[in-house]
Design a protein around this nucleic acid. Structure first.
Lengths: 299, 299
DNA sequence: CGCGTTTACGCCTCACGTAAACATC
DNA sequence: GATGTTTACGTGAGGCGTAAACGCG
């Protein structure tokens, strides 16, 4: 039994497939498979059930996984205690919601690269639900997602909050003193698709205002959403910073409402039991740079 | 960093020399040395100071050793949880005080061999102090020693108690109604050398009786002590079982005394932090068979 | 037939032991 | 010189990747 075998066990058990796990441990699928078989032989019993299309954990595997994680965690502690200057090398995969991606994601990446020049970084921008799923599958190492995950296999720590305001093209906003349920009659909502973090904010407002927009246009990019609002397609939510910038240039009007839009709390998400110091590194850089502030997007 | 390297680290750090440690991990000294260097390289700092004649732990090594032990312990727990039927193979070295060696040591060895036929066993019989020292140096895996060790690097669990009686050759005993301080005038004490467990019993009795034998004859074997007593050389302590047997055959007389001889509690001794399941195996067999009972020696 | 996993095989590194060298007491 | 540790070097096993085969959906 070796630590490498246990690492392979952990990733193979928690990733969507052996191929994903193989990437994590920098091995080919073939070698990973063999490494797992070696472990099973040394333990005297199978950890995976290979009868189906994809390998699943046996009862024994299920039972031993948390203990393997504990052991790997100890090993990392030991390495840390030895002061191993582990410049995490290789590649990491981070995910980000779109709003974060157009505000402070560049700062995150900059901090990360400054601290660890060896690290090659691959970024996935998507809506929160998709990112969470990719984290679970093992496709991502960490992600910035709005809200706090309910998935037991993931953990998160709070980062920063984004605030939003209702906006419309100035011409279209002229007839709107304040936004309420009645205002939606004949008007179109411009927003992001379901599953994105803004959904929480929107649902909350709609519930309190007892409103129901007749028509909806959605796009998974804030830039496009802003563009649609600016071009008078409808009324929509924009991040405060972005809205102020557009308002300053006379492109949109910010609409008051007796119902306040909730803040959206972003959190750093990562796998519950990921024993790699890499995760700490990612988190540190992320926490240090996360701030929606009042600023608009960098573009 | 591998588990094997950490094992090597543990043994090299806690044994008297690399050669002793090398035997423990079934390696040549040369290979052990290289394995340790590999670990030091992977940790980025030396664990041993080789400037002197013998390698000693550096400050870093001292600091990391307990953590390495903890890690190894976890690894063993994991193996155990996986139900690895580790028939401990190879050899083990056990130590035993002489009294245990002539009473139930054979039963211990029998139980051990029955449970683990693969195990080759090497036995060292010596006085307690010597055994404790050999345990510390890494020359022994476990030992049965009278009393409880004060050495912090060793641990022990109670086994069984031996009781003793004063004896003398019947002719010589005729003038002795009861043994007290006065009785020692002109008489010789026959006993085991200092450092053996019986020392505690003897010192205790002498202190309470305020006695001081004029002359002492000692030998490190109970059989010889008994022989000396039988041949009228002096008065001495014998294990109850042995004494009753000799009394039954009219070879000695048991001497009463108003001061009771203390029992001698034997304990199973082993290295504090030895992570090997072997130790548990040895202990189980030992506890199951340890019993001075009323029986005499097997010979 | 696609996807996920294992087997076959050649390659090369790594870890071992023997033997000699080195260092300390 | 005895003891303890490291270096040099030849050898063999183990772990890797490529490529092909297998098996389930």
């Amino acid at each position: 039994m070796t630590l490498k075998q246990l690492e392979a066990f952990y990733w193979a058990a928690t990733c969507a497939s052996f191929s994903t796990a193989a990437e994590r441990v920098h091995l080919t699928v073939s070698s990973l498979s063999k490494r797992l078989v070696e472990l099973e032989i040394s333990l005297g019993q199978p950890l995976f059930d290979r009868s189906g299309h994809r390998a699943t954990l046996t009862a024994a595997g299920e039972r031993l996984l948390p203990q393997a994680v504990e052991l790997l965690r100890r090993a990392e502690q030991f390495r840390a205690a030895a002061g191993v200057a582990e410049g995490p090398q290789g590649s990491c995969r981070i995910g980000s919601g779109e709003l974060a991606s157009i505000t402070w994601l560049p700062r995150w990446v900059t901090a990360l690269r400054e601290a660890h020049p060896q690290l090659s970084i691959s970024i996935t921008v998507d809506i929160g639900e998709a990112l969470a799923q990719r984290l679970e599958r093992g496709d991502l190492d960490a992600a910035v997602i709005a809200g706090r995950t309910a998935r037991p296999s993931l953990r998160c720590t709070p980062l920063a909050s984004a605030s939003f305001v209702w906006c419309a093209e100035p011409q279209l906003a002229r007839g709107l003193r304040s936004l309420d349920a009645a205002a939606w009659e004949g008007r179109t909502l411009v927003t992001l698709p379901r599953g994105s973090g803004i959904t929480y904010v929107l649902d909350d407002w709609m519930a309190r205002a007892k409103a129901q927009p007749e028509q909806t246009v959605s796009c998974n990019q804030w830039g496009v959403v802003a563009g649609l609002i600016v071009s008078g397609q409808g009324v929509g939510i924009l991040p405060t910073g972005l809205a102020r910038g557009l308002e300053h240039r006379g492109r949109v009007a910010v609409l008051p409402s007796r119902y306040k839009l909730r803040q959206l709390d972003y959190s750093f998400h990562f796998r519950n039991d990921d024993p790699r110091p890499l995760v700490q590194v990612l988190q540190r850089a992320c926490v240090a740079t996360a701030d929606f502030g009042a600023e608009g997007p960098f573009f």
